[in-house]
């Protein structure tokens, strides 16, 4: 038996810290939650109100814009039809809205953090272990403070999803900026470019393929959180899987899982196609 005197009250500290946050900054969190919720609910209602065929056409249009390939556009339209044919259209739209908002928040937080990490070795040294922790910690753990801060529901689900999904985007933004050819960077500086001009005009455009790969990975991680998020009240496809588990209905669970896979294919193919297009004219080799 490990001696009790050597223990330290980590769990108490964290409980107290989260309590302190809730008591003193509850209003701030509520205001933040309200604006995210407003966005999410608006998007969700919008998507559900749209005629199904318009959504299918929009997906096909985006796929074509990303890849310029008719094959991909038709394929992804078929994937949407599959979701509808499983009777999960409405739930899929809820999950789609949740994903879009979660990914938007991930991008808004992840890219600037990645830029900071690329510019400061010290910040990066502090950040990397935190990112490792965020990715390795069982994702259920995030649900607890999220629920305490934002209550059960969609906003907590988004917070937990973002925490889980943001590390690859930060890492790959940092990597992409650090991999920019130092001679090109020197060229930019030698012409008197300000740090901002160098960042926006040279580093970010040349890091774009890496950033797009990061967004793709973040999306895949976010989709992996769909079922877990449904445990704290997020609606959508995750709910189906959870229901399948609780009521011992394997068919319900499997259909829900299949629809999640369908959404994953959709997001993956579109973001990869955009990523491939961002790779054109990014190096001078051959």
């Amino acid at each position: 038996m490990f001696p009790e005197e050597l223990g330290w009250p980590l769990r108490l500290w964290i409980d107290e810290f989260v309590d302190w946050l809730v008591i003193n900054y509850g209003d701030v969190f509520e205001a933040a939650a309200d604006s995210v919720l407003f966005l999410l609910v608006g998007l969700e209602q919008g998507l559900r109100a749209l005629p199904w065929w318009l959504v299918v056409l929009a997906v096909a249009g985006i796929a074509w814009h990303a890849s310029r390939r008719v094959g991909l556009a038709v394929g992804l339209a078929a994937v949407m039809l599959l979701i509808g044919s499983l009777g999960l259209w409405d739930k899929a739209m809820q999950t789609l809205a949740l994903m879009i908002v979660a990914i938007a928040v991930t991008v808004i937080l992840g890219i600037p953090t990645g830029i900071l990490a690329a510019r400061s070795d010290r910040f990066r040294a502090l950040l990397l272990p935190v990112l490792d922790l965020m990715q390795t910690m069982p994702s259920f753990v995030y649900l607890i403070p999220a629920v305490m801060l934002f209550g059960l529901g969609k906003v907590s689900a988004i917070l937990a999803t973002v925490i889980y999904a943001v590390p690859p985007l930060i890492r790959l933004t940092d990597l992409g900026i650090r991999q920019v050819d130092p001679e090109v960077l020197e060229a930019s500086q030698s012409f008197g470019a300000s740090p901002r001009q160098t960042l926006l005009g040279v580093q970010l455009p040349l890091a774009l393929p890496s950033i797009m790969a990061g967004i793709n990975q973040s999306i895949m991680m976010a989709l992996a959180m769909v079922v877990i998020a449904s445990m704290i009240g997020a609606r959508g496809l995750g709910e189906e899987v959870l229901q399948g588990l609780q009521r011992q209905e394997p068919g319900t669970g499997f259909a829900g899982g299949l629809a999640i896979v369908a959404l994953a294919i959709l997001f993956d193919r579109i973001s990869q196609a955009y990523g491939r297009r961002s790779q054109r004219h990014r190096t001078v080799e051959g």
Binding site: V184, A187, V202, R282, V284
Partner: peptide, 10 residues
């Protein structure tokens, strides 16, 4: 400045 490996912006 002109660079050895040109330093062009791809």
């Amino acid at each position: 400045m002109v660079f050895q490996h040109f330093g062009l912006m791809p």
